[in-house]
Each structure stands twice: as C-alpha cells, then as structure tokens.
C-alpha cells in the first residue's frame, strides 16, 4: 500500500529520505537527504568565501573592481547597511554571525532551484538555528543586564507574571524556527504537488513563475525576517546602556 493514500497518483514526494544507515551505540542513525543537501550548500558557501577572500586580498586599489569583486562588495554593502541600521553600535560584534546566518539560510532556501531538497525544510536544521539565537539572547541578557536585571525583567509588572514571561522567553526559538521551517516546507510541498499531480503539458514554462514565488521570493523574505528578528532580540537583550 502506498504511503500517501490521500494522494492518488503516486509520485508526489517531498519527504526527507534516508540514504545511509549505521548503528551508533545501539541507536539507528540515518544520513538523510537533509545532511547531503546541507553539506552541498556549505561546500558552495566555503568555495564562495574562499574566492571572495582571495579576490579582496588581491584587489588592486588603483583599478576598478572586476565583476566578482563588485558582486561581493554589493552583498557586503547591503548586509552591512541592514545590520548597522538594526543593531547600531552593537553591530561590529555580530556582523560575522548574522552574515553567516544570512548566507546559509538564503542559499538553503533557494537550493530548491538547484534540484536539492531545501535543508531548511527540515525541523532538525531550523530548530538548532533558533536555539543558537536563544543562546545569544540569554548570554547577552546575563552579560549586560546582570542577574538582578534579568530577574527584574522576568517579574516585570508583578511577581505573578513570572510564568507568563518565562513562556514568552522560551517561545522565541520555537516560533522563530517554526516560521522558517513551515514557510520553506509549504513551498516545497506546493512544488511537489504541482509536479506530481498535474498533467505533463502544464509542467513546461509555468513552474518558473511558481519557483520565483515559492523559492526566491518566499525564501528571501524568510531569510530577512529570521536575521532581522535575531538582531532585534539580541539588541533588546543588550539594552541601551
């Protein structure tokens, strides 16, 4: 019997698939498509970063920059502008992390265009990203507001608000990661349904428009939102002192 009895014509497929299985201290551990796609994305990023670093190091100040260097400068200008306008004087400490996050999530989201299954359409990828943000928030809270400030912030209007404030704090990584995950997953599912269920003659040309919306537009927006919210939360935790 088919795994998806609700989808009658068979080849709709957007699930994470296991590729390779091994035993780790008695537990079954799977290497899945997510791992492979994430590794491909990281490989592309590493090669890009190495090329960009070399281009910048070998740049000749007296000459106009070439095409590749221009693209790198454009990207850096844009991201620096966004990070500076959001975080203000704290930007210098976080620009590396936010930049890495931005590039990884963006390339992951649009990797559907390259025929990969987007790694961010797996909750096992987005939840750790949310947890890193949560760790950054908590660390900076304790570092800049001290323990007394954190306790004061938790009991904000009154002591009895403590559980609600705690839930609010712990909801941050969950809502952050679920937002990214669900958006990318919905795009993946829509494309899989389109390719799997419709007759062949509508699959020529028309999917390009859908790919622009579901992969490029939605992916770019969600990348922006994730980075923006991370920056906002971290600057909130640092405070204005």
């Amino acid at each position: 019997m088919s795994n998806y009895p609700l989808l009658l014509s068979g080849d709709v497929d957007f699930m994470v698939k296991g590729i390779f299985k091994y035993n780790c201290f008695g537990h079954e551990v799977w290497i899945t498509t997510t791992h492979v796609c994430a590794l491909i994305v990281m490989l592309i990023l590493i090669v890009f970063a190495a090329c960009a670093g070399r281009a910048v190091r070998n740049a000749d100040i007296d000459k106009a920059p070439g095409t590749f260097l221009n693209i790198v400068e454009l990207l850096m200008d844009f991201l620096d502008g966004v990070i500076n306008s959001t975080m203000g004087k704290n930007a210098a400490k976080f620009v590396n992390y936010i930049l890495t996050l931005f590039l990884f999530i963006f390339l992951s989201n649009i990797s559907g265009l390259l025929g990969l299954r987007p790694p961010t359409a797996d909750y096992g990828v987005t939840f750790p990203l949310g947890l890193i943000t949560f760790g950054l928030i908590t660390f900076n809270k304790f570092k800049h507001q001290k323990v007394s400030g954190v306790i004061k912030g938790l009991c904000d209007p009154w002591v009895f608000w403590l559980p609600i404030n705690l839930i609010g704090d712990f909801a941050v990584p969950i809502s952050l990661s679920l937002r990214l995950f669900a958006n990318v997953l919905s795009g993946t599912v829509m494309m899989a349904l389109y390719y799997g269920l419709l007759p062949i003659f509508v699959k020529i040309g028309i999917p390009a428009v859908l790919h622009i919306y579901f992969d490029l537009f939605s992916g770019a927006i969600q990348t922006y939102v994730f980075c923006m919210l991370t920056m906002t939360y971290v600057s909130d935790a640092i405070g204005t002192d």
Partner: peptide, 20 residues
Amino acid sequence: MLLGQAVAETTGLYGLLVAM
C-alpha cells in the same frame, strides 16, 4: 511591512503544520 506580515503569518503557518 514585510517584517510585520511575516510575523503575523506565523499563526496561519501553525494551522498549516497541523494540517500537514
């Protein structure tokens, strides 16, 4: 606007996740 809309979208996405 885009930031606010993306945050407002979250509840709808929870519904989508439950459906999935």
